[in-house]
């Protein structure tokens, strides 16, 4: 059992035109694409965001199977949404027991929507180093004022991303320690196994709290006060390809809006 494998959408380090986009452009573009997907009026018009998303995936030089792991980890969610649609939407021709053509249509509609949103989010998270994605989010949010709040949100993102691998390692360590003491997580009834898992979860919580406390002190020691710094070491540079990328997302949104309201 490895806790690290729960992590999805982690940054994949390769060189690609998508990787080198400005994180602000990428974040804003991703938002626009997701909004477009949400506004798509009917099954047919999914073709537009799908084309854009698939070409971005292609350009990102990360294999499609890697993106699929993201979708796979949301399988429960997807199946749940699908079943809800099948059960709640009835109409048209009856195909098989409670399944109707209308239900099937709306089920496809919803599942496609979710899949496209997951893919869009994955493009952002897998091609942007954690640090830059926090910076991108921060910069975009600060466009709407509230510099301090945006900075804090960026900081929270950075720390959260910092924390995930630390906790994964910690979980691994505790698990191994318990196994070394003779705990067996593989055998026994489900209930027993769950109970035994508690001996991992509780130390993990304690350790997470201690780590959070440590990090606070570490940040204070480095003069963190919550005020956004006036000068940043890493400067973000906007280039033509960022404008082009953003233009594509805007065009997508506009065409979806036209399709929806005209």
């Amino acid at each position: 059992m490895k806790f690290g494998s729960f992590l999805v959408g982690r940054y994949v380090h390769v060189e690609s035109p998508i990787h080198s986009l400005d994180p602000r452009a990428k974040f804003l573009g991703t938002l626009l694409v997701i909004i477009s997907v949400l506004l798509v009026p009917n099954l047919f018009f999914y073709i537009l965001p799908a084309i854009l998303i698939l070409s971005l995936i292609r350009m990102s030089r990360i294999g499609f199977p890697v993106y699929l792991t993201g979708i796979r980890s949301f399988w429960f969610f997807l199946v749940f949404a699908a079943v809800v649609q099948l059960v709640s939407v009835r109409g048209g021709v009856r195909i098989f027991s409670f399944i109707t053509s209308e239900g099937l249509l709306s089920c496809t509609f919803v599942v496609l929507r979710l899949v496209l949103i997951i893919l869009a989010a994955e493009i952002f998270s897998m091609t942007t180093p954690p640090l830059l994605s926090a910076r991108g989010v921060e910069s975009v949010l600060s466009l709407f004022g509230m510099r301090k709040l945006s900075y804090e949100i960026g900081m929270i993102m950075t720390i959260a991303m910092r924390f995930v691998p630390i906790l994964a390692m910690e979980a691994d360590r505790i698990l191994k320690a318990q196994i070394a003491r003779g705990a067996d997580f593989e055998k026994g009834k489900l209930m027993d196994r769950l109970k035994r898992l508690l001996v991992v979860v509780i130390p993990l919580l304690v350790s997470a709290m201690r780590k959070a406390e440590e990090l606070t002190v570490a940040m204070e020691a480095r003069l963190y006060t919550g005020e956004p710094p006036k000068i940043r070491y890493r400067q973000l540079a906007w280039s033509t390809k960022d404008t082009i990328f953003l233009a594509f997302s805007v065009i997508l949104l506009c065409s979806i809006l036209v399709a929806r309201y005209l």
Binding site: P129, P130, T158, R162, E214, V217, M219, R222
Partner: peptide, 8 residues
């Protein structure tokens, strides 16, 4: 280890 803040 407890004083690390940055990702790099």
């Amino acid at each position: 280890a407890s004083q690390i803040i940055g990702a790099t």
